[in-house]
Design a protein around this nucleic acid. Structure first.
Lengths: 211, 211, 211, 211
DNA sequence: TATGAATGAGAATTCATTCAT
DNA sequence: AATGAATGAATTCTCATTCAT
């Protein structure tokens, strides 16, 4: 037990290395246009050898996405049912979405561009679940704001959710390149834009807007 | 015996038939996940015979997209440089974008989900050009609104454009399924949301907002 | 029976037109690399319509070759068994081969480059026959010359035939481009080269050589 | 138990095995009439698996040809500019050409019959280069011989080169079948034939001729 | 005779995956 | 864990040929 080959890092780490490389390649080329060979080449491994770590290309994709998603699924839901003032809740929902883009830029791009493809596969049903949860959170918050008279009475929660989510979902595709803004500035811009669009005129949301 | 049933339509029509079928399949499955065989099967033709009409799969995609895009490229640009009041201009830009989704639902979905893939191909360089024109139009209008004091002084035109375009680009993916809204209601909801988000408080934009 | 469509020339001529065009295309691109569509395009006809004139691509090839070959097959054989002096016979064999290149440049190129391919097809068995006849003529003449003491005693008729035929067969590939020489000069050069190579030193062949 | 039977050879060898098989098939059927499946079948591998070793059919062809050609390109050129007596130089040029046929019978056949096709492809531009070098060597030697008065004054170097090269280029097509001659006999026959055809009468070249 | 659409067999190539070593 | 060779199914595309009009 003297010397053990230590060419590469520990097994778990090697696995993670591959996942990181794969995420970058998937983000750059799209899932369908990325071959396992592409991944292997960039990870310094032969494509066949990837199968010692993963049982299929899809498993790699799944693991990349799950790893990024797992931690914080329930936060939005909790927020929606909390006592937090609706404008502040909207802010937090927006900030959290954009933080995801910042924290997991590759995964965010993968999901943004592979959405259609992923949603069609049973394997990625959990994305539907998650999407439904996010939608429910937004709708709940928007409804609450309307009930409290702080959001416009004519606001369509579903349509508003779709508009906001569209804006947020597109962010990964331009975020990395725009060194101009950092993620908090972006979030601030989005929060201002949408809160003004959502709230009734002239009053309450100011605190959140200027906060 | 005047009219005899003719099995197939006129030449120009057969081509168009195939393009329509192909657009539907591409929209449903994504470009990369659609084989020429899929198209052939749905069009009632052998995949090889498609090459009697088109010289490659990419040509089919290109023709589908160009046919939808060609007519109205310059309208947005013209509008940006017109005398139209900025809020009204914003409304028109928004309405026109959403009308595209309504008029060409398949193409809109194809572009929305294939964006990454398409932009990477030289063949579809015209999409970059078009995207740049649209962006320029939005930024010009937003700048003009700021200069006239009707849009918020702290508005970031680039970021705002990205938010709006994100919302608009996502629309094709839910538009068809949501029989709930018709396209004008949707446009109205977007116009209200974004104009309120963009304009300074309490005054001028009212006409456009309530109009 | 008043007016008959006379758009193109008489049927026989139209057929010949197509054959001529096809010969040119085959010569330029090779048989295997020429599609019936190539021929149709250059003949101003759709590929399918070619089948009103010919029953297959191979038939076109065959007809092109046969038309060029038919007239003069037996001449060489007759010459071989005639009383003509061997050197003069050699000259005539050479001249006739090179004349073929001159008179049927496309067919000569087609045969030169398609030889391997053509000889493999049953349909073109007549090329074997013809080749054998030519070979027999040459060998007979060379043998006769040796017997008469005018050709070198150590001459290998078979090998000599192969050398001469190789030189002659390659000619179609450069003939057209070399406007420098006309066909008779070329023949003269070949005759001189080979007769000197074949004959015994210092005497008899002079007449033919200088003739 | 020293040696264990190993089914497949070493890596470099497997590749070479395939190249050898492919060369044989190409020589037999012609390049255009050989499918990658033909090669696979004869090499005992699925056609798709060939792409593990080569990236295209053309690459296989190129590698086969380059491997045979690479070693000795410059020899002819060097000879042309050396002090070697012209008749001896001619002999060497001829012998070397025929040796190529002997050493690489498949490649020689491939080039002989695929010439037209290969020269048309950019990928095989190096064949033009090589052909030009060989031509230049021959012409230089022939000119030198004329200048020294050992070759006929009325000799056309270009035409002579074409005749000789034609004879030599055709050799691969009959060489293998004619077990009658071995390569040196053939070379001797060619050398005698062409040197007699080239040289002035009666004298100098004798040494080379009888050598 | 010609058109234009279509057929059907097969071409080269791609790629996720397997497996002996 | 990794290699390198191979599989096998599928993919895009080609092309001689057929056929209704």
């Amino acid at each position: 037990m003297l010397a053990v080959g230590t060419r590469s890092a520990s097994p778990a780490t090697r696995r993670q290395e591959i996942l990181d490389v794969a995420a970058a390649v998937f983000a750059r080329q799209g899932i369908a246009n990325t071959t396992v060979r592409d991944i292997g080449e960039e990870a310094g491994i032969l494509s066949g050898s990837l199968y010692h770590h993963f049982s299929s290309k899809d498993e790699i994709v799944e693991e990349i996405i799950r790893a990024a998603l797992d931690p914080d699924i329930e936060l939005d839901v909790a927020l929606a049912h909390s006592e937090v003032e609706p404008p502040e809740a909207v802010r937090q929902l927006l900030v959290r979405s954009l933080r995801f883009t910042h924290d997991h830029p590759d995964v965010a791009v993968i999901i943004a561009n592979g959405r259609h493809e992923l949603l069609a596969a049973e394997r990625f049903d959990f994305l539907h679940t998650r999407g439904a949860a996010i939608r429910a959170s937004w709708v709940a918050v928007l409804e609450r704001g309307k009930a409290q008279g702080v959001f416009r009475a004519d606001l369509d929660p579903d349509l508003t959710y779709k508009a906001v989510m569209g804006a947020v979902s597109a962010a990964p595709n331009w975020y990395r390149r725009s060194g101009a803004h950092d993620i908090d500035e972006i979030a601030e811009g989005f929060v201002t834009l949408f809160l003004r669009g959502i709230t009734v005129r002239g009053d309450a949301p100011t605190s959140a807007l200027e906060g």
